[in-house]
Design a binder for these strands. Structure first.
Lengths: 189, 189
DNA sequence: TGCAGTTGCCTAAAGCATTTAGGCAAATTA
DNA sequence: TAATTTGCCTAAATGCTTTAGGCAACTGCA
């Protein structure tokens, strides 16, 4: 019996790659077993069940995204930081569609609280330090930015903007411009 | 043999209700068959396969959403129209989480082109008539609004904003205010 | 009203994904 | 080298998906 050397980590990493290739929904315990040329049951020593596998892939994606965000924010502020951070989301989704889809998985509250999702919110707040927003407007703005990034990227990936001029890169640039203008000029309640 | 009177329409409608109750992912041909107390194979005369069923539920949801949007827009303009339209999305998602999830299903291009999704874009453009935006900024703005509505609602439903002050209703109101301000003051390229 | 054709639901069966239980051999540790 | 842990296995149950083919109940027409 030749041991392949399975670990939870390797499974999750391979699952993430598989997701990017064939789509997150197609990531199944069976497919992963085929990939490692191993019997299906063998994976269940490393992963609790199918949902556990998917959750772990989601956590990986969130962490990778947060890492990229942190790198992008280093040494930037204001609109520069905003644009860089926005591009992280968009680029990651384009490079890793399966992982990005995984990052959208609904996590139960405790898992979410322990995930890199928390870092995302912190980074968004960091960006807003370049603008003059007091609470509660800062929180409103954090939520708005999250919505735009997430919403834009998922609509674009879902083909929502397809086949129409102007191209999505131009829109993306202009949307970031518009958000910058809005944050500099946030309306009073 | 008692005939239940299955039709594609009834299946789709029941599937939509099931989605709202147990989640869109749990909507399966088998579950629907159980609901009608009928053998699984019987449904395959009315629905091509599982994916076909889900697509039809998605189309139903898109149409319902568009109908509500049209009703909300009737007789309104400017910020009033913007707020009403935004609330349609949010309310629909809260009332019909399963259907809303269905509406997010990625449709192939021809299906999408024939869907009520087209009406959504038209309505968003109609709202923008209340603001002074020429092309291509109008298209950018259409995409921004779509992103915010979609992104906000799905983050909120996914628990992304949970357990934190201020409450999401207040944020939603302020986000709509902010969008209105942005559209009235759209930055030049 | 009676019959023919259509339709609605059935049985049967194959394929694949998920999950658990229990076992043997290889790697690790003492 | 012996003992223990670990990695992968076989076997088996369950459930969802899908296709093929059949009979009974409707429908419409004479």
């Amino acid at each position: 019996m030749v041991r392949v050397g399975l670990t939870t980590e390797r499974l999750v990493r391979a699952g993430a790659e598989l997701a990017d290739e064939v789509g997150f929904d197609e990531v199944t315990v069976s497919a992963l077993a085929r990939h490692f040329d191993v019997k299906v049951a063998s994976l269940y020593s490393h992963v609790r069940n199918s949902h556990d596998l998917k959750t772990r892939i989601a956590l990986l994606a969130l962490a990778e995204l947060a890492d990229r965000g942190a790198t992008a924010l280093a040494g930037r502020a204001g609109k520069d930081a905003l644009a860089a951070f926005a591009n992280v989301y968009r680029d990651y989704a384009r490079e890793h569609p399966g992982r990005y889809a995984a990052a959208q998985l609904r996590l139960d509250p405790e898992t979410a609280a322990a995930s890199a999702g928390v870092r995302h919110a912190q980074m968004t707040r960091a960006i807003l330090r370049g603008y003059d927003l007091a609470e509660p407007d800062q929180t409103h703005a954090v939520r708005l930015l999250g919505s735009v990034f997430h919403g834009y990227v998922s609509l674009e990936m879902g083909g929502g903007f397809s086949h129409s001029a102007p191209d999505t890169q131009e829109t993306w640039t202009r949307v970031v411009d518009a958000l910058d203008a809005l944050l500099r000029n946030w309306p009073a309640a």
